[in-house]
């Protein structure tokens, strides 16, 4: 993957294509987490994310930061299309910043495999109810968009988006705790 990222940074289209095919699903899921985005807008986020990423890829210093960096760009673009004024303002500010990002040295407790296990365990640990259903449908089954989940569960789109954001914050809290614990040693 690191070699593919380096070749893409040099403009090799085949390598860009490989990266697109590997990551378009992840980028789309980030955009689909916003219940305010129509399906066409989700595709716009995917487009804009990859176009921007390929343009700025030569500035990415660490290939191992690629996926996180790409998803961060996707989240910013999704915010930019959001109806929420605060979110749009934040996205404009974030997108104006340098594209590179810091790459924290990851402790063993934060490998991707361990982080995925954290997500699954947190979903399992939720009490039965609409909050758990929403997180399970979106993050574990991974097929429906936030809008589609809202329709299936008979909820408002904003309610689903809010639940997904709340669950995401729970994951952030758990991962931040692990980052800090690794520093304490």
């Amino acid at each position: 993957m690191a070699d593919c990222i380096r070749r893409a940074a040099q403009g090799e289209q085949a390598a860009c294509g490989q990266l697109y095919q590997r990551f378009h699903g992840a980028v789309r899921r980030v955009a689909q987490g916003s219940g305010t985005l129509e399906a066409a807008e989700v595709e716009d986020v995917v487009q804009e994310t990859f176009v921007r990423a390929f343009r700025e890829l030569p500035r990415l210093q660490h290939p191992r930061a690629f996926s996180g960096w790409l998803l961060t760009i996707a989240r910013h673009h999704a915010y930019a299309l959001s109806r929420n004024v605060k979110a749009r303002a934040r996205a404009a500010e974030d997108l104006a910043r340098e594209a590179d990002m810091s790459v924290p040295a990851l402790p063993p407790s934060l490998t991707l495999e361990r982080r995925v296990a954290v997500v699954r365990a947190l979903i399992e640990g939720l009490p039965e109810g609409p909050e758990k259903d929403t997180a399970r449908l979106f993050y574990l089954e991974g097929e429906l968009s936030a809008r589609e989940i809202a329709e299936r569960l008979g909820l408002g789109k904003s309610a689903v988006t809010m639940r997904l954001e709340r669950f995401r914050a729970r994951v952030k809290r758990e991962l931040l705790a692990r980052l800090l614990a690794a520093e304490v040693g």
């Binding site: 996180g68 960096w69 605060k86 303002a89 924290p104 991707l112 699954r120 979903i123 995401r168 980052l179």
Partner: peptide, 29 residues
């Protein structure tokens, strides 16, 4: 968690945390 979820977080707050989180979330399925 409400603080971590807020929309007006300052840029660069907890650097890398959003990326670590999103990577895990999209890979969970």
């Amino acid at each position: 968690e409400a603080f971590l979820a807020r929309e007006d977080a300052s840029p660069g707050e907890f650097p890398g945390l959003d990326a670590l989180t999103d990577e895990a979330l999209v890979e969970a399925s």
